[in-house]
Structure formats: structure tokens, C-alpha cells
Design a protein around this nucleic acid. Structure first.
Lengths: 150, 150
DNA sequence: AACACAAATGCGAATTATTCGCAATAATGT
DNA sequence: ACATTATTGCGAATAATTCGCATTTGTGTT
């Protein structure tokens, strides 16, 4: 699978296909799991200012190109969303921070939400222990510890 | 439904039933929706130091008494978890920040997660527009704006 | 009822993540 | 080539959350 036409995606979503955002999307495309803004910046060779990066991520998330994920680590993680990337969810190890994708098999079929007119998105993350951590009996690891590990 | 025996819950989870934590849990018990640490502190009359509050929330979340929820607002929200409160999820309005509970009808039945030995928890939030925001055409509200509203 | 000890608290300072203001640049449609 | 407007970089500002440390206080035990 070759990378989608990011330039077109950006323009169609009302934005501009700036070199910065294109590099950002290509970098995200290569990431195997959701990344923090800081790591993303590093993977871009520290070009692209962090504030700019956050603004881009926010804008992209706003039009649904990027997805913001929460692993309860105290900071956000980002990943490409559909259509560049198939809809899916995550399994996050509370021991070491390992993350694994889970295909989204369940169709969240809520009964008509009383006070809502539309459901536009949903987030779902599973938490548990990967085999390694489960084996070593890593019952509970402090959040701080977990963060340090990524 | 009368409030559970928080003192006992605390002790059983390996902690102490200090007046502070008891007040904290009673306050959480009364909240109709997940709250931020700051608001919780305010609802406690600003007694209970904020650092202490965070430590308590973290500890309680660690033993599963409290649940940390992410509405993509840039800060965490907390609520009581089972058994004090039935398992459920949320519907969050991206326009005004309104939150509504959703009973958890779906049984997340993942096929044995390859690299995981145990799934201990999961989080699921739905995002959309409440009727009010949907009507007034509040397509997109900046995250900052949303935060200010809570 | 008095103890011993670890857990919990308060305070203030430190970190971290994320956002802002503003002037300078650059992508797009015409 | 131009005008318009989004985007960028920078440095400073916020906001949320955590830390260090001395002090207090539950709890299980004598």
C-alpha cells in the first residue's frame, strides 16, 4: 500500500498543502502506533516548530484527517485517521506502554441518544497487560513510569 | 440509592479512609458527570489541596475505584467507577461540552489479543452534537472554546 | 489507651504539555 | 504576477499535573 495523496487530502479539507504538513502526514503515515507531538517532531528531524506542529495536528484532527488518542499517559497521542488509515482502536499495556491495533468489529449501535442530534466520532481504548508484562507480574505501574517508557 | 460505604471501599483497596478521601468520594458520588480535578476541589470548598487531590485521584484510579475520562478537552475528568457506579460510557457534545451517560450495552469481545495477556479495562467515548448545538449549526467549536464552557 | 509506621497531606516550587501573540512567509485562486 | 489568507517560527504565557519534604494522622498492634 502506497501512501495516499496527502496534498489532495489537505486541500480538499480546506487547508493548504504546505511542505510542513505534507512531511507531517508522511511521518504519521509511517508510524506504527499513535505518537506524541514531541516524538513526531523528533521524527521530523526537529524541523517544524512544536507550536506549528500542534496547530497542524489540531487543524487536521478538526477535519478528521488525524485522530487524537488518549492512553491516560498525561499527554495526547496522534495518528492518521480514515480514509488514510482504516478505522480501528487500541490495546494499550499499562505496564510498558506497548500499543497494539484492534480492528473495530463492534458497531456502536446506541439507541437514539436522547439529547444528541448526531454522533460524529468515537474513541475506544482497551487497557491491559501485554504478555511480557503479564508474565513478569507487572500488576501496576505508575503513570509516570509508563510515560518515561515511551 | 444511598451512598456506598466509601470508608470500607477505601480500606479494602489498601488505602486509608481519611476524611479528605471520604469527602472526595462523597463529592464524586454527587456529580452527575465526570469532573475536572479543579472543579472537584471547588466543590469541596477548596479545602483539600490540589496536589493531594490529584494524588488521591491517581491512587483511587489505580485500584479501580475512580475512572479517568478523556473528552479531548486538554485535561482529565474523573468519575466514580464500579462498584459504586454502574459501568457506562459517555456521549460528549463537541459544541458545548454537554455530557450524557450511555449504558454499556456492547460486550467488547475481542478475539484473543495476540500480544496481550489480559484486558483489565476499557474506555469509550462518543463525540457528537447535542440537539441544541446541532440545531444552531455548531459544526466545529475550537477545543479552547469548549474548555472555557465547562 | 498508648505506640509505631506507613500512608496521606499541605505547601511551594518545578515540570510538562499545550497555546498565544505577532510579525514574516508562502500557498492558492484569479 | 497579485492579492488574499492560511501557515509558520519564535518566544513568552498558560494550564495541568507532579515533586520534594517536613508534618500529621489513620491503622493494626501491644
Amino acid at each position: 500500500m502506497r501512501p495516499p495523496d496527502f496534498a489532495r487530502m489537505l486541500r480538499r479539507s480546506g487547508g493548504r498543502a504546505t511542505p510542513g504538513r505534507l512531511r507531517l502526514m508522511r511521518a504519521l503515515w509511517k508510524e506504527p502506533a499513535p505518537v506524541t507531538a514531541a516524538r513526531l517532531q523528533k521524527s521530523l528531524g526537529r524541523t517544524l516548530n512544536l507550536a506549528t506542529l500542534y496547530r497542524a495536528l489540531d487543524a487536521l484532527a478538526g477535519v478528521g484527517v488525524v485522530r487524537r488518542v488518549d492512553f491516560r499517559h498525561g499527554h495526547a497521542h496522534y495518528e492518521l485517521a480514515a480514509p488514510a488509515r482504516a478505522h480501528h482502536h487500541h490495546l494499550a499495556c499499562t505496564g510498558c506502554g506497548a500499543v497494539e491495533d484492534v480492528s473495530c468489529t463492534l458497531r456502536p449501535r446506541l439507541k437514539r441518544a436522547s439529547a444528541f442530534s448526531a454522533i460524529t466520532d468515537h474513541a475506544m481504548e482497551y487497557f491491559g497487560l501485554c504478555k511480557a508484562c503479564g508474565a513478569r507480574g507487572a500488576e501496576r505501574v505508575s503513570r509516570t513510569r509508563t510515560e518515561a517508557m515511551e
